[in-house]
Amino acid sequence: MRLVVDLNKCQGYAQCAFLAPDVFTMHGEESLVYNPRVGPEQREQVARAVAACPVGAIAVEGLREASDAG
């Protein structure tokens, strides 16, 4: 799966970093660091993170495919 976070939208609510902590990491209060390439073992966590983002800033390519394959 490939991830993109729209950092212009991101407000630092950190919901993704709670729900997929091995993919999204907060550095300090507001800056987000993430790994744009994630393996299928993170699929559930990434799906939770995407849905929980209050500003809808996370886009994932291949989330559904990974879901079908899983």
């Binding site: 950190a14 970093a17 709670f18 902590p21 990491t25 300090g28 209060e29």
Partner: peptide, 8 residues
């Protein structure tokens, strides 16, 4: 409770 200090 959460990130950055207690991310897990």
């Amino acid at each position: 409770f959460g990130p950055p200090h207690r991310p897990h």
